[in-house]
């Protein structure tokens, strides 16, 4: 059966092509191996956990945002479906707590349409306040970082639609602080981090157990640990980077079901049409 062989061949070739780019990523980041974490938003059916995003937002707001900007995040986003889903009133009140400088240079209270204000006026000011290191903008940070898997495990990524390299990295980085192993020199003003490329990071350990007090809801108690904070904030940052993730995957699920059904029907049409032609 030439046809069957052709189909199998086509699949194999396309898999090969699909498999290749992962090597690029593998070679690109020579960071230590980072463990894949469990995320509610991984896989084709993943969605964000609203409560986790709200906690992550709290960590972001109380800790990260004092040095990091997130210029693409608008207050209104925080109330949109698929995200932390704060109420309209909460978003409005939150925005009003911030002073926004207008295009004309006038300061006024924020409105939901405004974007998250940057902690520093410009990059130079940010560097000066952080010992020369520039805290990166967090708008798409979770997509601008990645992890690598050794051969051949990255091939699996194409079949699991693994796209959580960023959150995995952020989680690992926030838990990667420690004392440098013997022989590793860390320059003055830098900190040892096992995950950071080069191991000398300019950011002091930002989290400590109990640093952020979550409002505990009845029944479920969320631990106040660095591990928990880092999971929450990594999820939140993934949402900031990819606010339409849930609706995108939902649409994709419908599209793929449609395509499978349509392909089945097309196959029957094709077969019936060709039934009377020897080929």
């Amino acid at each position: 059966m030439i046809k069957t062989k052709s189909i199998i061949g086509a699949l194999l070739v396309s898999m090969l092509f699909a498999a290749v780019p992962a090597v690029a990523q593998e070679a690109a980041h020579a960071t230590p191996e980072i463990q894949k974490e469990q995320w509610s938003f991984s896989g084709p059916l993943g969605t964000f956990d609203r409560d986790q995003l709200q906690r992550g937002f709290q960590v972001f707001r109380e800790v990260c945002s004092s040095c990091h900007s997130a210029r693409l995040l608008a207050f209104r986003n925080l109330g949109e479906p698929g995200g932390p889903e704060f109420t309209e009133g909460q978003v409005k009140a939150l925005a009003a707590e911030y002073q926004i400088t207008d295009a004309d240079g006038v300061k006024r209270p924020g409105i939901p349409a405004d974007h998250w204000p940057a902690p520093f006026a410009n990059d130079q000011e940010a560097r000066d306040a952080n010992g020369g290191a520039l805290p990166p903008d967090m708008s798409v940070l979770a997509k601008a970082r990645g992890t690598t898997q050794p051969f051949p495990w990255w091939i699996l990524n194409y079949f699991t639609a693994y796209s959580e390299g960023g959150p995995d990295y952020i989680h690992a980085l926030l838990n990667g602080y420690g004392t440098p192993p013997a022989g590793t020199e860390i320059p003055e003003g830098k900190y040892y981090n096992a995950v950071f490329p080069g191991h000398a990071i300019g950011m002091a350990p930002p989290l400590s157990d109990g640093a952020v007090t979550y409002e505990q809801t009845e029944g479920a108690s969320v631990p106040l640990t660095v591990d928990q904070y880092s999971r929450d904030v990594a999820s939140f940052l993934m949402w900031v980077a990819e606010p339409h993730l849930a609706s995108r995957k939902e649409a994709g699920f419908q599209v793929i079901i449609f395509l499978v059904v349509f392909a089945g029907l097309m196959y029957l049409v094709k077969r019936r049409l060709w039934a009377s032609v020897a080929h």
């Binding site: 449609f258 349509f262 029907l265 029957l268 049409v269």
Partner: peptide, 13 residues
């Protein structure tokens, strides 16, 4: 029936 069903599904797509 097959052709019409397929055409209808295609139109939806």
């Amino acid at each position: 029936f097959l052709y019409i069903a397929t055409a209808a599904v295609g139109a939806v797509g």
